[in-house]
Every structure is written in C-alpha cells, then in structure tokens.
Amino acid sequence: MTSTGQTKRPGRPRGTSDARERILASARELFARNGIDNTSIRSIAAGAGVDSALVHHYFGTKQQLFVAAIDIPIDPMTVLVPLRDTPVEELGHILPSILLPLWDSEMGASLVATMRSLLAGSDVSLIRSFFQDVIIAEVAPRVDNPPGTGRLRVEFVASQLVGIVMARYIIAIEPFASLPAVQIAATIGPTLQRYLTGDLPGL
C-alpha cells in the first residue's frame, strides 16, 4: 500500500534510458572474457550499474542475453532443441539438413552477416564462447565415446560447418555456392557422422 492508500502497480524495474545498451556492453565484455558459464546475470548487472531484475526484464534468460549480445537473429536453441530428439547415429545427417536451409533463408543472410562482422572485428572470443558454451556443451556429452572425446568430435564438426559458411556464403566459391542445400547436406552428412560417432585416428 502507498501513503495514499492505493496499491502500487507492478511495473518494470527502474532503469535509465540507456540501461539496455549498458547491459549489452557489460554482457559482451564479460562473455568474451569469461565465457557464458562463468558469467552471471548479477555480474553483468553490476557492470552495467543496474539491478539484476532489469536484466531479466529486458532479455529474459542468460542465454537469451547472450544471443542479443552477439546480435544473431535466431535463438540457437531453435536448432539445438530438435537435435535432442534425434538419435545419435543420425545427428551428422540431420544437422546440415537443418542448418543449410536456415543459412539459405533471409534470416540466414543476417546470420552470415553477423558472423562476417564478428570475424572481422574484435569479438572472435564471443564466437568461441558460443561454440564452447552452447554448441559443444549441448552435443558433446551425447557423443563422448570413448570418454573424453566428445568435445573434440564436436569441434571437428564445427570446423566443417564453419568452412561451409566461409566457402558458400562469405567467399561464395562457385559452383559450390549455388549447389542445392539438400545436395551439400547429403554430401557432408556421412563425414559429420563419422566425426561424431566413428573411429578417428589417434582417439
């Protein structure tokens, strides 16, 4: 109750007009320095000079804040969640069949532009954190056979996928850049699957 006897209406936490940008700046710095897992909402809020509740108000979860911080136009869980229901022995085939049509779409063009910008700038550590704390953390435990190989297996897959982005969308090597997505997916699927579940030299 307020002093006038009226119930105070709930609203958004107080913050200055530039609070959102300060939160993003703090998040980029801390995510780049410490990674996602070792960065807390509280530390981001402290760096921005705001209350933690304001961070949640603007961005929701820590992962949603990370997506906003690296400015990609799609939540990576849109891709990763369906993979949770995919049998391990099919992951290598399903992954490119999901990613390539997405990259070929209008939304994918924004994704590629973001990656190009990050690679050209000083935010490579954010891409590294994205792979390590989101992609690898999600998939590696499922392919960790023999134990201790899961992380490296996913990194081999990531190297292949990043190479495709570079060759198809950034450098645009022909005729590769114009091949149907389904043809590329069918070609690289067996290789990705071998990385994930097959025998690898030295492992």
Rank of each mutant, 00 (worst) to 15 (best):
S97E: 13
D75V: 08
W103A: 14
L83M: 15
D133T: 01
E89L: 08
G148R: 07
G148Y: 05
R116N: 11
D104A: 15
T78N: 09
L95I: 15
L111T: 08
V79T: 14
G121F: 03
L152K: 10
S122C: 01
L100E: 05
P76S: 10
R151Y: 06
R128V: 11
S129E: 03
V79G: 10
R84C: 06
V139T: 10
V134L: 14
F130W: 12
L95A: 11
L100Y: 04
E90H: 14
G92C: 07
E106A: 12
G148Q: 07
L83C: 08
G121Q: 06
P76R: 09
V124A: 15
P101K: 09
P141D: 05
A137L: 01
W103L: 15
L91V: 07
S122N: 13
W103Y: 12
T114L: 02
V134Y: 07
S97D: 08
I136P: 00
R116I: 07
R142V: 12
P87E: 04
R84V: 10
M77E: 14
E106P: 01
I98L: 15
G92M: 05
D85C: 06
A137Y: 02
D104T: 10
E89Y: 03
G121E: 04
G148I: 08
R153C: 08
T149S: 14
P82E: 10
V124I: 13
R128I: 08
L118A: 11
L100V: 07
M77H: 12
